[in-house]
Design a binder for these strands. Structure first.
Lengths: 116, 116
DNA sequence: GATGTAATTTAGTTTAAACTAAATTATATG
DNA sequence: CATATAATTTAGTTTAAACTAAATTACATC
């Protein structure tokens, strides 16, 4: 548990990802599909932060990249997170939070590719 | 350990404060004097964050306000922090970090008070 | 080697945290 | 009540994190 790990679990988004890969590995694509309010790129960057903090590890297979939590790296904090996720009150709080912030990525006009 | 607590301990600055009030209470002034690279106002705001996260509590006496860590609120994380602070390697790392970032608040021209 | 799929990386933007200076609140003391 | 001390709060700025769109890499399949 270095400071990078403390920083990593401070972000709700990264905790969301951590939760998805907690009990079984998931591909980057599956993780992204589970959180449709952000782009694939954003998910990939957060995965990188988690890997660099040592909280998640990756395995490459063909065209996929499988991620899974390194629960042992969290030590006693693993239990804290599990309690947070299990707690019913918590679930309500999270639902309210998500309701507020999750309205999907704002649609932007796609830049026209300049023909050569 | 709510998410506010996880967020609170993610900040190096707040961990620095937490460390100062870990074993005995300190006045806001003493805390500020121990970190001369930021203003008193900045310290006060971080103290507020820590109190709101439930990690620190305050007691008022005369003109002073004494702060101390609520170690019990951190549960198993208390040990993690203590280990971080005790570890010699850690001390070196922190010293290097501080060397980089701590050069005191940038001096700014004081705005002249308009005479009425 | 063109096409398609999975994911990462880059460069730039937006959002939120941390900070500053100054104003303000509260309490004590002459 | 004026002055001084201790701390907080406010309003605005700076810095850093999170995000986006588009480009790029990597590996299959035709």
């Amino acid at each position: 548990m270095g400071p990078a790990a403390l920083n990593a679990i401070a972000s709700p988004r990264r905790r969301e990802i951590l939760r998805l890969v907690w009990n079984q590995e998931q591909t980057a694509g599956a993780i992204h599909r589970a959180m449709p309010d952000v782009t694939f790129g954003a998910v990939s960057l957060q995965l990188r932060t988690l890997v660099e903090a040592g909280l998640v590890e990756a395995r490459t297979a063909q065209r996929n990249r499988f991620y899974r939590a390194r629960r042992e790296a969290l030590g006693p904090v693993a239990e804290i997170l599990e309690r947070m996720w299990d707690d019913a009150l918590w679930k309500l709080k999270l639902a309210a939070e998500l309701e507020e912030t999750r309205r999907g990525p704002k649609p932007r006009r796609r830049k026209k590719k300049p023909g050569l």
